[in-house]
Nucleic acid binder design. Sequence first.
DNA 1: GGCCAGGCTAGCA
DNA 2: TGCTAGCATGGC
Length: 301
Amino acid sequence: MIKFPLQVTPPFDPHALFSRLSFTGNRPSLIAADTERQRLIRTVRVGPKALPLIIDFGGTVDAPLASLSIPEEATPNERDQLLEIASHMVSADIDLSQMYNHFADNDRLHSLFARLRGSKLFLDPDPFECLVRTIICQQLNLSFAGTLIERLARLAGEEYVIDNRSMLAFPTAEAIATLSVEQLRKVSFSQRKAEYVIDAARLVVDGGIDFAKLAAMPDEEAIAQLIRYRGIGRWTAECLLIFGFGRPDLLPSADIGLRNGLRKMYGLSTQPSASEVEAFGKSWSPWRTYITFYLWESLRL
DNA sequence: GGCCAGGCTAGCA
DNA sequence: TGCTAGCATGGC
C-alpha cells in the first residue's frame, strides 16, 4: 500500500465516527474499524473494479490528521478517484464551524453541538451502495439491517484480504441485478425488500436511475425523480441525497430516529409527527442535514 | 411475548 | 388527496 495525506477541515473528531459505525449496524466484513489505531478499512468501487483502502486518523479535533493508503499498483487516475472518494466519505470539506457560528444563539442547538463537537457524517462511497443500503434499512432495526446487508454482500460481492482481514466488497449493480428474489428470500429478506433491491439494481444497470444526472439536480427534483420507482419513497430518496451525495440541507421528517431525537431534545411526551418535525426544522436551513445527524447522534449519548 | 424498528405500497374513502 | 392495514423479521 502507498500512503497519501488526506486533508480534513477542522473541527473533526473521528471518535464519533467509530462509535457510530457499530451503532448503525455495520459489519466488520464490509467496513472494518480498528478503534485503537483509529483506522478504517474497506473496499470501494472505481468503475466496476473493487479497490481496497485504509484511512488512518490522528491529530486533534482542531488540527486533525488523516491519511489514505491504497494499493501501489493503482493507476494515477484510480489514485485520484480514491482520494476523492475517501475525502467524500469522511465529509472532509464540511466546515462545521460555519454551522456552529450560524446557530450560536440557539441554546438547544448550542448544547447539542457542544456535546458532539467535530462529529461529521460518514458517507457511502458511491450512490448505488447507498441506495441499496437505504432500501434494506427501511422499517428495520439497524442491527438486523446490517445482517441483511452483509448477507447480500456475501451472495454477490467479491471477497478480499486487506490488512490481514477477510473483507467483502459491496456488490455491483450488475451482480445484484442477476440475483433472484428466491436467493434473497433464503437469507431472510422479505418478499418486497428482495424485489425492491433487485429492481433498484436493474434500474441502475439499464440506466433508468442515472446517478450522474441525479447528482446535478436540486434536492426536490432528484427526490421527485426517485420516488417514481416502486420501493423508493421520500425517506429513501432523502437518505440517498444525504449519505450518497452529501447534500447539506435535507430534513427526513418521517424518520423515526429524527423524531425520537427531537422528542428527547424538547422533552416531548410523544413522538412528533412528520409535520411537527417540519415545523421544528424550518429554521435549520441551510444545515438541516447536519442538525438531523446531530439529533440521530444524540440518541446514543 | 409483545412491541418496535432511521418505510413503502396498495386499496379505500 | 389523505388515511391505513399489511408486510416480515429480529432485537430488546
